[in-house]
């Protein structure tokens, strides 16, 4: 664990502080102030990304530091879920934003790197960006699934979906993005390495996460809301597979593969 005494580090720490403050303020029943601080945190996160982009001279999605920096821009997804999907968990999003930025601030190496030839492709940004968006949606879905398991329902008057329904709605938004990420990655693999499917550990984990959500849809089609707890467990299992895809395969030396450059 290291503290980054740089402008980049300062921007990350300010975002974390703003998200945490927004969370505390919202929990203390000052939602309007909480929202304003959350928005401020998002603005700082955008500045952090912009600064990084300028600094490294390519879309900052190359390594885990940059990816987690992007994951920290959770605010638009949070707003979309609240306004369009009528899904709660707004204050939890602030906490998720801070948790996601923590490894970027204290764990991952922020040394700028030049893009290796394999990453110099028009597919680099859409492939990673689409995956990042889908991961944020799936993280929100699994939070709703945990709420369902814990028996937490929105308060009457809040005009929000119950957790089981909310989980399904968010997975329906995230799944096409997950599919698109998988397919763009496969097409890119063909362009760069000659195979649209290389049986690489990261590819197999990403296939496993996609399949878990596919299983969720089939199970829910069969039983509907009859077994809400099992429905929720499917989604949580899918999120676990995503975390392994994102972190373990990149960080662990147990599974060296074509994607190891991202560590």
């Amino acid at each position: 664990m290291e503290i980054k005494y740089t402008i980049q580090g300062l921007l990350v720490y300010l975002t974390i502080a703003a998200y945490l403050l927004a969370f505390v303020t919202t929990v203390l029943r000052r939602p309007k102030i909480g929202h304003a601080i959350y928005l401020l945190g998002f603005a700082i996160a955008v500045c952090a990304i912009g600064y990084r982009w300028y600094h490294v001279r390519h879309v900052p999605l190359q390594n885990l530091f940059e990816v987690f920096l992007c994951l920290g821009m959770i605010y638009p997804v949070s707003l979309f879920c609240r306004r369009v999907l009528r899904v709660g968990g707004y204050s939890a999003d602030m906490l998720i934003g801070a948790i996601v930025l923590f490894p970027a601030g204290f764990v991952f190496n922020a040394e700028p790197q030049q893009l290796p030839p394999a990453l110099q492709s028009w597919l680099f940004s859409p492939h990673v960006a689409v995956y990042m968006f889908s991961y944020i949606f799936m993280a929100k879905a699994s939070f709703q699934a945990i709420c369902q398991l814990a028996g937490k329902n929105p308060k009457p008057g809040e005009n929000l979906l119950p957790p089981e329904q909310a989980t399904y709605s968010i997975v329906c938004v995230g799944f096409p993005l997950l599919t698109l990420g998988l397919i763009l990655g496969s097409y890119w693999g063909k362009q760069a390495w000659g195979d649209y499917w290389g049986w690489d550990p990261k590819e197999l984990w990403s296939l496993a996460s996609w399949l878990v959500f596919l299983g969720y849809f089939h199970f829910r089609y069969m039983f509907g809301k009859k077994h809400p707890r099992i429905n929720s467990l499917w989604v949580i299992a899918g999120m676990a597979a995503i975390i392994i895809t994102l972190l373990w395969v990149n960080l662990s030396r147990l599974f060296p593969g074509l994607h190891s450059y991202a560590s």
Partner: peptide, 10 residues
Amino acid sequence: SIYGAFIGAE
């Protein structure tokens, strides 16, 4: 797939 991820690409 999970098993395959443990045995390497080849």
